[in-house]
Amino acid sequence: MSDRSRPILAAFQFLSRIPIKAELDFSPELLRRSVKYYPLVGSVIGLAVWAGATLSSWALPTLPAAVITLILWVWITGGLHLDGWMDSADALLSYRSREKMLEIMKDSRVGAMGVLACVLLLMLKVSLISSLLELGTLPSGAALLTAPVWSRWFMGWAMRSWPMARNGEGLAVRFHGVSSKDTILSALLALTLSATGIFLASSTDWSGVTWMPLVLYFALHPLVIFGVGTLVARVMNARLGGLTGDTYGALNEGLEVVLLLLAVLIFR
């Protein structure tokens, strides 16, 4: 196994259930080096989810097809980021002190607010997937192939841009020190992969392509991810005194939904 491939394999092993047979030590250095490849993992997840959505929508009405698509999406990620979403909801919606919120996030149990937040997120996500499938292969492909790319890119940006809430503790500390160079390279990779994804989605039906919404979506979705993600991360940082591994996962889940919603608004 080459030294160059180890960060790529680490990114896939950490962020997905895609079978990668490699013995890795997951040292802080390796984890930091893997962050720039997060958009690549997102693109593979998006491709698998879009393929599942396309196949299921051929055989089923849009709503059950959307549910099957979401089940595939959760399975291929192992529910990793949903766990962060629930823990973050339990903490941030408790309106407790900073110390108490961080304590809540360390608790392996899920509270009422976490369950409610998860249910509402999945309901919104399945409704958006269903709407995109009704709109056709181009809107659904453009959204499903790009949302996982940019949401994972923003996790890397958040690791670089905001301090850790727990000094020397938790998962976030293992990613501390992601370089500016890696975040820039990750952004360029995300742009390339999202452009490729949108081209792939449009190639399914050139005759039905409406270029204005497509160009608008391509231009807006990185800006929307950056703007919304920055706003939410700043709120989390103000409440917690930094970010944690759970908040990275929560940002990923929330931003995926934001891009699905943007696609519905643009392509409808």
Rank of each mutant, 00 (worst) to 15 (best):
D107V: 10
A117C: 14
L124R: 14
Y95Q: 06
A91G: 14
G52E: 02
V35Q: 10
G111H: 02
V67Q: 02
K100E: 14
L60M: 15
P61R: 03
S88F: 04
L60K: 09
S94V: 00
L132F: 04
S27D: 07
P64K: 06
V110A: 08
M101Q: 12
P64I: 06
L116S: 14
I129P: 01
R109G: 06
M113C: 06
L70I: 07
L30M: 13
F26T: 02
V35Y: 09
W75I: 09
V41F: 08
L31P: 10
S56Q: 07
V74C: 10
M105V: 06
I71S: 03
R32A: 06
M113F: 14
G84F: 01
W50C: 02
E29L: 07
P61N: 06
K106N: 10
W85M: 10
S27P: 04
L80G: 00
M86E: 03
L40Q: 05
E103P: 05
S43P: 01
D25Y: 00
T54N: 07
A65E: 09
V110F: 11
S27C: 03
V41M: 04
G114K: 13
L60H: 10
P39C: 01
Y38T: 09
C118I: 12
V119I: 15
M123E: 09
G42N: 05
P28K: 04
M101T: 04
I76M: 06
A65M: 07
T62G: 13
S34Q: 07
T69D: 06
A112D: 12
L30K: 09
A53M: 07
W73I: 00
D83K: 05
L128E: 13
L121Y: 15
K36P: 06
W73D: 15
L40E: 03
L70G: 11
Y95C: 03
T54G: 04
L63Q: 10
Y37W: 14
T54R: 11
H81T: 10
W58N: 12
A65K: 03
Y37C: 00
L30N: 11
L60N: 11
A89F: 13
S108F: 07
A65P: 03
R32F: 05
R33C: 08
L93G: 12
Y38N: 05
T69S: 12
S56T: 15
I45R: 00
K106D: 08
L122A: 10
L55H: 12
D87G: 06
I45K: 00
P61V: 01
G114S: 11
D83E: 13
S27W: 03
R33K: 15
L116A: 15
W85R: 09
T62D: 14
L80C: 00
A59C: 08
D83F: 05
L80Y: 08
L82V: 12
R33N: 14
G78M: 02
L121K: 11
K100T: 12
M123A: 14
V115H: 05
W73T: 11
T69I: 07
K125M: 10
P64C: 04
V115M: 11
K106G: 11
S88K: 07
V126T: 15
L122R: 06
A53Y: 05
L92D: 03
I104V: 13
W75F: 13
W58S: 12
G42K: 07
V49F: 05
A51L: 14
S34C: 06
Y95M: 04
